[in-house]
Design a protein around this nucleic acid. Structure first.
Lengths: 336, 336
DNA sequence: GGGCCCGACTACAACGTTTTCGTAAAAAGA
DNA sequence: TCTTTTTACGAAAACGTTGTAGTCGGGCCC
């Protein structure tokens, strides 16, 4: 445990604790020679101020929390990197919490964050969050909250998202133009607003091109990879199987590849595949996967930037400042 | 900011602050009815103890730091997940710091951690760390340090690694048995002990099978993806190009795929490829990539477990307790 | 020379917990 | 009945910083 503190420096230098404290914060109340002496000794003794004492006194922890459903996923990993980059620049520390897509865990994390442990929170909802009281409470306690990607519409907080509706539309359109006439959509938790938007993009895309909507073509996937595998397998085994698949998240696209391999279906001949994904290996897959890729790193940076704007400005900011970054369609062999 | 505190609870209940504090910690010194009353009010007022006050008083933050070179990488992402899982179980919080493979950033992080902000540190070295004074200093301040994967041999600290030497040997052996006669090794920073071990496995593998060692076949890669690309391209463009490649990290294996595609080289016919990797899509690549995969999640869990053992036991533990988890060779088409 | 300001400090009270040391009353022991 | 122990609590001092409110000597002005 750290043991060199202000008192020791003060004693050594024959000045008061307050003088040392102020000298270190480069206050104008302290003469230059004194500051010099303090700086030197602090450096020599490798003094590191106790952050907990400081936080307690200042009601400010210079720490933020990042709450995400999972991390073993390029999207969230890159977002973390973006957040950490900005946080480091600003001299903030980053606590990380994984909810594992569990609303209960998310709630308990959020509740524990009410303690004032962090100055602000960046969050991406779990797939099963319906009750958002824990998030409202955070706001009520004046702890700024910024959403990214999996945002919550029913709460007034800044958010950073991609153009999910348009992306869903574009993905569907792309498949239709590639000749698909039975397009399936692999959706995730319909609790999430991004799911709705992607789905709406899908249905509107179908409508726009006068394609019939068949709700047998919408597969609602869950957390369990095994279950999803079965559902996708069932979908692709059926006599009227789709000739195009739009996967709303990366892991589902990957599963489609596995299923096709097992069933001996050829991508893209038998079925074309497009998916939301940030896989670095998308272009190396067999066949290369057409993706809608989100600017994860920039989203993280943006979310952090917005949060710090709130933390640092004294004047009131509008309750919302949303940022919508465009996702990018990268056409590859899986849809050609 | 949180504003309900012990004093308020105490006033409301007409007891002293100490009583409330003790009641909440379920002390035997407090009568059951009093505890009941305290618990109820605390719940009703949604009391969350101020962690900073507590940490200051107890010299214990219930927080650990995870310091890693990067996060947008399945290995480290999974390790984080393992660490976070154990930390959550133990009621600890996890701070994350990315060094971006920069020794300077690693040093500044480690130095700032001397403040007592965390109770312990789990670290994987940056690729350029040579000076380890900042880590020694941490230990001297009694902040337990546990290494994982990229460990530091010259410092007495517990470590969690895979059998890198054996893996290097096995990878090389596998290529030789597959018929390769000119095997290249794509190495990373030779500052790292894992690099040495993997390399030693490689050279010993060659020797064991009476293959000549050609140091033109060892490519020392850096951080810059462009530079690496050029080096790999040069390697594969040369007239006496290798017929087998052993990549010591995932991103290099991926680069090999890109280069081969560009040069029109067929994997595995022209060149066979094996690499350390935790890619979930390894089996879906074109061709499927033979990997040495490390049990990243378990390594994270193990590292955290060791750290908490140190944090929680009162009695002295041996300075070292290393864990070596086996990596796994997964043979796929890229070496067949 | 008395009042005033000013530069450069110091003293002390916070911040919200935990913990040490008491102590009154009740229970137990003699 | 009187001491001793136990039970259940309270007062106050930490923990290391920071902010507020002085203090004190000296220079300046009139």
């Amino acid at each position: 445990m750290n043991t060199v503190n202000l008192k020791q420096l003060a004693k050594e230098l024959n000045v008061s604790v307050s003088t040392v404290s102020r000298a270190l914060r480069d206050s104008w109340e302290i003469s230059t020679p004194t500051k010099q002496r303090v700086f030197e000794l602090a450096k020599k003794m490798n003094f590191q101020p106790n952050p907990y004492a400081s936080s307690l006194r200042k009601h400010r922890s210079r720490t933020i929390a990042v709450v995400i459903p999972e991390v073993a996923n390029n999207f969230f990993a890159l977002a973390i990197k973006g957040i950490e980059t900005i946080a480091r620049e600003k001299g903030y520390h980053v606590l990380i919490y994984l909810t594992n897509e569990d609303a209960g865990e998310e709630m308990s994390v959020a509740t524990s964050l009410q303690s004032g442990r962090v100055d602000g929170v960046i969050l991406s909802l779990s797939g099963h969050t319906t009750d958002i009281r824990h998030l409202v409470e955070l706001q009520q306690r004046n702890i700024p909250l910024v959403f990214f990607d999996r945002v919550c519409d029913s709460i007034g907080a800044p958010r950073v998202v991609t153009n999910d509706y348009e992306s869903g539309f574009v993905a569907t359109e792309h498949l239709i133009r590639a000749g698909c006439r039975r397009i399936a959509h692999l959706a995730i938790s319909m609790e999430l607003s991004i799911s709705h938007k992607r789905m709406k993009g899908y249905t509107d895309g179908l409508r726009r091109y006068d394609q019939p909507f068949d709700d047998g073509m919408v597969v609602h996937c869950e957390d369990s990879d095994e279950e999803n595998y079965k559902k996708i397998r069932a979908l692709l085994s059926s006599p009227d199987r789709p000739d195009g698949i739009f996967a709303s998240v990366e892991k589902l696209a990957v599963q489609v590849y596995h299923v096709c391999r097992e069933l001996g279906l050829d991508i893209p001949r038998d079925v074309k595949v497009i998916g939301f994904s940030n896989l670095v290996t998308a272009s190396l897959l067999n066949p290369a996967l057409t993706t809608i890729s989100q600017p994860a790193y920039d989203m993280g940076k943006e979310a952090a930037t917005i949060l710090f704007r709130r933390l640092e400005k004294k004047y009131i900011l509008p309750p919302e400042d949303s940022v919508i970054l465009p996702a990018k369609l990268e056409v590859r062999s899986s849809t050609i």
